[in-house]
Amino acid sequence: MLIPTARAVAVAWYVATADGHWTDRPITMIDEDAGQIVEGTVFHVEEMRQGHGMGTMTAYRVAEVRQIVRRFSGKYGQLLRKVLLVPVALADDVGDLRIDDLDVN
């Protein structure tokens, strides 16, 4: 993943594949460090793109955080924090389910 060298830090947010692995591309990037991100934290991602369900919220749990320091020529580098998210059902969402939705047999 390319980050312009003028940026000192970036956080890349990925949604895990169905088998829990990292995808090739993040769903979004943030230019500020988010050091408070720890595994198990729940985040709500709000869709802000027109034509993609604008305003919908999806809950995700942080499954893994990878912190990578990139070294370049000279004395400056970058911090890349990669965050792997997995979808979660919250109690509010589960309350809307019917018994047929919960029946696995």
Rank of each mutant, 00 (worst) to 15 (best):
D24R: 12
T28L: 15
W22D: 10
D24Q: 14
E46Y: 02
D33V: 09
S73I: 02
Y76P: 08
R70M: 06
L79V: 15
I68G: 04
V42A: 08
I30E: 05
I37N: 03
E32N: 11
G74Q: 06
H52R: 15
R49W: 01
T58G: 02
R61L: 00
I27M: 15
P87K: 06
K82T: 07
G55Q: 07
F72Y: 15
I30P: 00
R70S: 10
A34K: 15
T58L: 00
G40S: 05
A16Q: 05
D103Y: 12
R70D: 09
R49M: 08
A89L: 13
A16H: 02
T41R: 15
I68S: 11
K75L: 09
Q78C: 05
T28A: 12
H52W: 04
V15H: 07
R61G: 04
L80S: 08
G55I: 02
L97H: 01
V83F: 04
L97R: 01
Q50I: 11
P87M: 05
V83T: 04
V94H: 04
F43D: 03
D33N: 14
E64D: 07
R70E: 13
K82I: 05
V45N: 01
G20V: 06
A63K: 09
F72M: 11
V86P: 03
G53A: 06
P87A: 11
T23L: 01
V42E: 09
G77W: 12
G55P: 04
V65I: 08
E47I: 05
H44R: 05
A10T: 14
G53F: 03
A91Y: 09
D92A: 15
V11E: 09
M54C: 12
V83Y: 02
G77I: 06
R61P: 01
T23A: 14
F43E: 04
T28S: 11
A18L: 09
V65D: 00
G53I: 05
A12E: 09
V62Q: 01
M29N: 13
G35F: 10
I37K: 06
I27G: 06
L79M: 13
Q67D: 15
A18N: 13
R61D: 02
R71G: 13
R71L: 12
R66V: 06
A34N: 07
W13M: 08
T23M: 04
A16S: 12
D100R: 08
G74W: 03
Y76T: 13
G51L: 10
G40K: 01
R98T: 10
K75I: 13
Q67N: 15
L84K: 02
E47A: 07
A12K: 05
K82M: 14
A16W: 03
A59W: 00
F72C: 01
K82D: 08
A59Y: 01
M57W: 10
G51C: 14
S73Y: 00
V69H: 14
E47F: 03
Q36W: 07
L80E: 14
V94S: 06
Y76E: 14
G40Q: 00
D19F: 04
M54Y: 11
E39H: 00
R61I: 00
R98N: 08
Q78Y: 04
D93I: 04
G95D: 13
D31S: 12
L90K: 15
Q36F: 06
P87V: 06
V11F: 11
G35N: 12
